[in-house]
């Protein structure tokens, strides 16, 4: 059991670097991951690629926010921390795999490290092989047995995803709510034939935290631009 907690610690350390890495770096690493998936499971690769493309639209560039003069204001996103993603056994194995790949791609692209609890050997192997081939940073993504998730819920995970049944979803949601500390919402999919979560182009937004950075530039001459606007040159 202690082994799982150690994995959380490793993942948390990996997250710090991953989160600080530029978006383009993360994207290129995950594109390599997607390319590697292609060799083993083309559909999963497509799912991954879809979420990388959609996520890129939302996460790649900071939003420059227009306000009063003399300040720069930017909104950008970062990862929340370590995400716990749980893939349960279901009757819709392929849809479950695709939904989990959607979550996994979105969570990693958003800047999180991932603990993936899954007993789906096919899926695990595909992910593991791709991870090795793409040379994702060490400890960024751990594949762990499904039944380890209750222990990992006790760690300081910052996102949680679940693919499986409604019953487990309810129970998991309550367990998450009862934890001390940070409030973690559950991202889940139980209607696997519909797979609406996997098709949601905004899925990455569920795994981010937003940050704003405001810099007063009047103190250092930034308003020279404003002086220019008031000048004869215009």
């Amino acid at each position: 059991m202690i082994n799982h907690v150690t994995r959380f610690t490793d993942a948390q350390q990996a997250w710090e670097q991953w989160n600080l890495a530029p978006f383009d770096h993360k994207l290129s690493q995950l594109q390599a991951f997607s390319a590697a998936l292609q060799q083993g499971n083309a559909t999963l690769a497509k799912v991954c690629q879809f979420h990388l493309e959609q996520g890129k639209k939302w996460l790649a560039q900071p939003h420059r926010l227009i306000g009063p003069t003399g300040e720069t204001n930017e909104l950008y996103t970062a990862g929340r921390g370590v995400a716990l993603l749980i893939l349960d056994n279901t009757d819709h194995c392929q849809q479950a795999q695709q939904s989990m790949m959607a979550m996994l791609s979105a969570a990693l692209l958003a800047g999180n490290a991932v603990l993936l609890c899954s007993d789906d050997i096919t899926f695990n192997n595909a992910v593991n092989n791709a991870m090795q081939q793409a040379q994702l940073p060490a400890h960024l993504l751990h594949i762990i047995a499904f039944d380890a998730y209750p222990v990992l819920l006790g760690c300081d995970i910052r996102s949680a995803g679940y693919i499986g049944s409604s019953q487990v979803e309810l129970s998991l949601n309550l367990q998450l709510a009862k934890r001390d500390g940070v409030i973690v919402g559950l991202v889940s999919e139980t209607d696997l034939p519909a797979m609406s979560l996997a098709h949601d182009p905004l899925l990455a937004l569920r795994f981010i935290t937003e940050r704003t950075r405001t810099i007063n530039i009047t103190a250092v001459g930034g308003n020279a631009t404003l002086l220019e606007l008031g000048s004869a040159a215009h």
Binding site: L65, I66, G67, V182, T209, E210, R211, T212, T214, N216
Partner: peptide, 28 residues
């Protein structure tokens, strides 16, 4: 969530400094 450089750190303006934190400070 909100970092202010070389100014005060209160008075976020809607649409200019979207407001909210992370960790124990909020869900976003």
């Amino acid at each position: 969530g909100n970092c202010y450089i070389n100014r005060d750190q209160v008075g976020a303006v809607v649409g200019v400094q979207p407001f909210g934190g992370q960790g124990l400070s909020g869900t976003g």
